[in-house]
């Protein structure tokens, strides 16, 4: 496997703010890689370092084995889908998509043909004559993607591309982007603060916090085996409890993460818990229960008999499902 983007000990400081702090990364060609983290965690700065809009304060970046430091954005085989799309308002959709080709001096006919092909890939054929201001948010998003892929980059960077779309459209675009990545077979690097988006789309996820990568792994790894309390809380929701409470009695000093869906309501042989509150979420219902003074979140199917607030129920979980967390944040 070829490595498309590699970071070694990359730092980016703004005065004394460490936006990116000693990040090591290695992204394979053809991978759908997500950078996940809260705002200000350094994920967007990492993306900008790859695009070439920022230069690292220290450390080393390689793109397809070549040193990236000092290479201007216009010489990189990398294109970006910007957060708020950054479409050129004075050009129509076709000229926007064909912009990169125009800059490279490709004649108008061929350029328009290529641009139309890119528009077809994002299911916007026939929209070429419109202005970006005449499009809906979802359509603009597609134009931004088409504009970036029309250049045939080897790495596509996507900066929170779905952030401004409503839920239904976002889910649809997630599927489409995933499909597009498979068709093109190029590396997608995707920045998001939405853990659901990262879990559903990415081959691998890097979880960022305070400029550092906390954990890298497949979505399953990250979800089932979060290494720290931060990851356990940020990716999905989690009950952070003492290890001996969860049933791992030999690790008294440590904390574990117990996912809400790991806790089951049982008829017998369970721990007694009082239902504090419920929130109905359609197919499932989230319960907040208390057992031995510890509050726990759990999820049950809505089509079973729902317990009332204040009712005593029996709960149980497999201690194997509790995942031991490291002591640092």
């Amino acid at each position: 496997m070829t490595i498309s983007v590699a970071f070694s000990k990359v730092c980016r400081y703004y005065d004394d703010i460490k936006a990116v702090d000693k990040v090591d990364l290695s992204i394979e060609e053809g991978e759908f890689f997500a950078m996940l983290g809260p705002s200000g965690s350094g994920k967007t700065t990492c993306l900008r370092l790859i695009a070439g809009f920022e230069q690292p304060t220290s450390g080393h970046i390689e793109i397809f084995g070549e040193t990236a430091e000092g290479v201007p954005p216009y010489q990189r085989d990398v294109n970006t889908v910007f957060q708020d799309y950054a479409l050129f308002p004075h050009m129509n959709v076709l000229d926007n998509v064909g912009f990169g080709l125009m800059i490279r001096g490709i004649p108008k006919d061929e350029r328009n043909h290529e641009a139309e092909k890119a528009l077809q890939m994002v299911r916007l054929s026939g929209y070429g004559a419109r202005r970006p201001s005449e499009l809906s948010g979802g359509q603009r998003q597609r134009v931004a993607v088409a504009r970036a892929i029309a250049n045939k980059p080897r790495v596509l960077l996507l900066d929170e591309p779905l952030g401004a779309l409503d839920l239904k459209l976002r889910e649809q675009m997630q599927d489409e982007l995933k499909e597009l990545q498979k068709t093109l077979g190029i590396t997608f690097i995707f920045v998001t603060h939405d853990q659901g988006e990262a879990l559903s789309m990415a081959d691998r996820i890097a979880v960022f916090n305070n400029g550092k990568i906390i954990q890298i792994g497949t979505p399953k790894d990250i979800y089932q085996r979060p290494e720290t309390q931060f990851v356990a809380n940020f990716v999905g929701s989690s009950n952070i409890v003492a290890a001996d409470f969860a049933g791992l009695s030999d690790r008294k000093d440590r904390l574990v993460s117990l996912r809400p869906e790991s806790i089951k309501q049982v008829d017998s042989n369970g721990r007694e818990a009082i239902v504090i509150s419920r929130s109905y979420m359609g197919g499932s219902t989230r319960l907040n229960v208390e057992n031995n003074g510890v509050r726990l979140n759990m999820v049950i199917q809505s089509n079973t008999g729902l317990p009332q607030d204040g009712e005593k129920i029996l709960i149980s979980w497999d201690p194997e499902q509790a995942h031991l967390l490291s002591n640092d944040q």
Partner: peptide, 27 residues
């Protein structure tokens, strides 16, 4: 003129003078 547009132009392969001619000046 949003800085993002100038970055987008550069990202799509424009050198400074091309960004000036095709993006900054028209806007």
């Amino acid at each position: 003129v949003p800085v993002k547009l100038l970055e987008a132009s550069s990202d799509l392969g424009s050198k400074s003078q091309q960004t000036f001619r095709h993006v900054l000046l028209p806007l």
